[in-house]
């Protein structure tokens, strides 16, 4: 564990809690892509199957369970409890365009051709692109509430910090994981455009982020 890794985990947790609290307090999931949240729940489910096979640490187990629980709670709020506020008409990203290549790639490029390894690889590849329905929705409507942009900021920050963590681990432990690194870099690149808009628009005091 290093400071980048811990900060990355914390910002990931902060992002998820921001989103959950926003939906819970406003009793609305307007502007939130339910599809992205389902994909993230799928990411956690397929990656954390190792909860049943290996024990790493109490921290590791607790965080995995928390991420799983919070992601399912978010999906529940969007599709069940506050489904009347869900903007399904704007959440029109074709998820199969992500799932089919990701499934195919995880069968082709993995560390071992076993169900758990393929599912782990699938979760890494899927996480890299899971935010696309949300970014697509913002592009389509041309705006996002500031709290939604704070969520995206922390989610992007988490990924950027993980890259710093990998650089650190490479230098201190001579260890690196190519599948995780390539996917992590791809995922971070998706956020670059958003980061630019976040700093130039949201943090300059406007309530909403509007696209030009």
């Amino acid at each position: 564990m290093n400071v980048f890794r811990l900060a990355g985990d914390v910002s990931h947790l902060v992002a998820i809690i921001i989103l959950l609290l926003k939906i819970w307090r406003s009793k609305s999931c307007a502007g939130i892509s339910g599809k992205s949240q389902v994909l993230f729940a799928l990411v956690f489910t397929t990656r954390y199957l190792d909860l049943f096979t290996v024990f790493i640490s109490v921290y590791n187990t607790v965080m995995k369970v928390v991420f799983l629980a919070l992601s399912y709670a978010t999906v529940y709020l969007i599709y069940m409890r506050f489904r009347n506020s869900y903007n399904s008409e704007n959440d029109t990203f074709r998820v199969e365009f992500l799932l089919v290549p990701v499934i195919g790639l995880s069968f082709l490029e993995n560390y071992a051709f076993t169900p758990l390894e393929i599912l782990w690889t699938f979760s890494i590849f899927l996480e890299a692109v899971a935010i696309m329905p949300q970014l697509f929705m913002i592009t389509k409507t041309g705006e996002a509430e500031s709290i939604t942009t704070h969520y995206l900021f922390f989610l992007g920050l988490y990924r950027a910090l993980y890259i710093a963590n990998w650089v650190w681990r490479y230098h201190t432990e001579s260890f690196y994981d190519l599948i995780a690194i390539v996917s992590g870099v791809v995922q971070t690149i998706f956020f670059c455009d958003f980061f630019y808009l976040y700093f130039t628009r949201v943090l300059r005091g406007r309530g909403k982020m509007t696209l030009p």
């Binding site: 890794r5 290996v54 590791n60 965080m63 560390y111 782990w120 963590n165 260890f175 994981d177 995780a180």
Partner: peptide, 10 residues
């Protein structure tokens, strides 16, 4: 070889 990295990171 067992890869603990992937199970350690979240």
């Amino acid at each position: 070889e067992y890869n603990v990295f992937k199970h350690d990171e979240l």
